[in-house]
Amino acid sequence: MTLIIEQLLNGLQLGVMLFLMAAGLTLVFGVMGLINLAHGSLYMVGAFACAAVATATGSFWLGVIASLAAAAAAGAIVELVVIRRLYSRDHLDQVLATFALILVFSEGTRWLFGSFPLFLDVPAAFSGPVTLPGGIEYSRYRLAIIAAGLLIAVGLYALITKTRLGIRIRAGESDREMIAALGVDISKLYTIVFALGAALAGFAGALVGAIQSVQVGMGEPVLILAFVVVVIGGIGSVKGAFVGALLVGMTDTLGRFLLPVFFGTFMDPSSATSVGSALASMSIYILMALVLVAKPSGLYGDAI
């Protein structure tokens, strides 16, 4: 039982992090109609900025601030120099150009930091376990990640529904030409949305960097998971991204935990582990396929 609750919390933590990634992807797609493969690179930029600054100054918090700033700046620069030229292009050009950006970012980072992974320590205030009601011990840092992610989700919701910027973002999603005609500086809006998405990705990178190692290529597996989230939730829907992220996080974590146990009930332990883990690694994609069969445009997407 304790183990299941722990795994549920791990699933929640993964889900919340995936949401931070997927929210940026889905916003950029919804507002600008752009498919951005380089989103994972911004996650990596955030993690590296955090690790580098935290190592240099000794403060994790300065690192987190640096990760937000670096990822947002990288996002804004990339938008101004490259992405801007791609809005009017078809998806093929966007895929290719952002694939090229991945190569540039990954190799550039390898050039600067070398191939060895960096390590980022959990801040002292959040290290060690915390005892939850019911006597369950759980990592204080992971719990803080969950809280931070949920706070950001609420903040993002408020930003999009309550503020002027949010109104513009939603207007941009439904009719780009019209809000340009109404005098909104659309190219500035695009840069802001892109930088916002980048900052979220960078933040996720920094937080996850403290529990995993910070290395080149860390962004792409997460990027592809975020794609699965976006496909399940429906492209352009932040709400869909949230629901999809939690679904994917839970399915992945619980699948890895439960499937080997399940196969262990009627198979010998070693083959149960191998069959179970092989199936578990496919579980979220099977979930995606099921959602697609039922609703091809995702849970909250517009019909296509």
């Binding site: 998806h91 794609f227 697609l292 091809p296 445009s297 296509i304």
Partner: peptide, 16 residues
């Protein structure tokens, strides 16, 4: 499975 969709969905799904 993936041809049930099109556009950006198709790209992401084939990748997945």
């Amino acid at each position: 499975l993936s041809l049930r969709t099109s556009g950006a969905y198709f790209i992401m799904i084939t990748l997945a």
